[in-house]
Amino acid sequence: MAFPPRFCLLGPDRWNVSMSQPTSWTLPIRQRSLIGILTWREIATRYRGALLGVSWAIVTPLLMLAVFTLVFGVVLQSRWPQAEDQGVGMFALQLLAGLLLHGILAESFGRAPALVVQQTNYVTKVVFPLEALAWVAALSAAFHGVLGLALLWLINGVWGTGFSLTQLALPLVVAPYLVLLVGLTLLFAALGVYLRDLQQVVGSLVMVCMFLGPVLFPRSNMPQGLRDWLLLNPLTVPVEQFRQVMFHETWPDWTLLASYTFAALLIYAVGAAVFGLLKRGFADVL
């Protein structure tokens, strides 16, 4: 893959790509310009030639909202326990919140095993901070997810439960979730170079996270003995806390959120360490 023209004109010093290969902890800061350029390049490439362009990032959640409202709210007549008296519209909004957060996981983590394999030029022909690929994957997924969540916030504010001060905590709920996804992406991107079957495994894990998490139904619908185990699903805490803050005008569970943040940082550290260890052999394998 050739570098975009801006890279060629600016030269390595202006990319801020260090020959010493910065660690994964400092990379988002030291390589923020490079990560920003690659993220926007990926977003622009996705919509290049499309009639609506980036507007699809807003149109798609609206279509999802309409379809899932029809299927679950009208055909199956499902209701959210805490919103049974608020009609099918409130059910659809709660459902869409879970689907949008799951979509970020599906787009970033789902690409992880092939992330390095599909960028062989970055491995064999140039000096490049490969850890940046994980941040680019997560941020491009977050771009689409956050646009959808912002649209959800607006629709809920106008036609749902309204705007509230607690919604200021929404970024604090989403941020550790993104850090955790970067850690998982780093881990599986490194392993994916050596274990090509991981692509099939990750696809299944993405589906498991949706159906064994509070995306299509609340965790209270699960048998009592399984509810605590669902906390191991990386989606459970952000989805539940997001709904709590968005729709119920309550602050998040700070203790639970702090524990989740600690786990996210730990997973990021493990992913970064494994990636740094295994990337020494990438060139030989690829």
Rank of each mutant, 00 (worst) to 15 (best):
F7Y: 14
G11V: 06
G11H: 10
S20V: 00
Q21I: 01
T23E: 06
W25V: 07
W25M: 04
P28K: 10
S33K: 14
L34M: 15
I37M: 12
T39I: 07
T39F: 07
T39N: 06
R41S: 14
I43E: 03
R46P: 02
R46H: 08
A50N: 11
W56N: 09
I58A: 15
P61V: 09
L63R: 07
A66M: 10
R79P: 04
R79V: 10
W80A: 09
P81H: 13
Q82E: 15
D85F: 02
G87A: 11
L100N: 14
L101E: 05
H102L: 14
G103Q: 07
L105D: 02
A106Q: 08
E107R: 15
S108R: 09
G110P: 07
R111Q: 12
V117Y: 02
Q119K: 12
T120G: 05
V123L: 05
L133K: 02
L133P: 01
A134G: 04
A134C: 04
A137F: 01
F143T: 10
G145D: 06
G148D: 05
T166N: 09
V173R: 06
P176Q: 13
V179I: 13
L181Y: 01
L184D: 00
T185C: 02
L187Y: 01
A190F: 03
V193N: 04
R196C: 06
S204G: 07
L205E: 03
V215W: 03
L216H: 05
P218E: 07
M222I: 10
P223K: 07
L226W: 15
L231V: 12
N233Y: 10
P234V: 09
V237C: 08
P238H: 13
P238D: 08
Q241I: 10
M246R: 07
H248L: 11
E249T: 08
E249M: 06
T250H: 15
W251K: 04
L256N: 04
L257M: 15
L257F: 07
A264Q: 06
V270F: 14
A272V: 00
A273F: 10
L277Q: 10
L278E: 05
F282Y: 12
A283V: 04
D284G: 12
V285E: 13
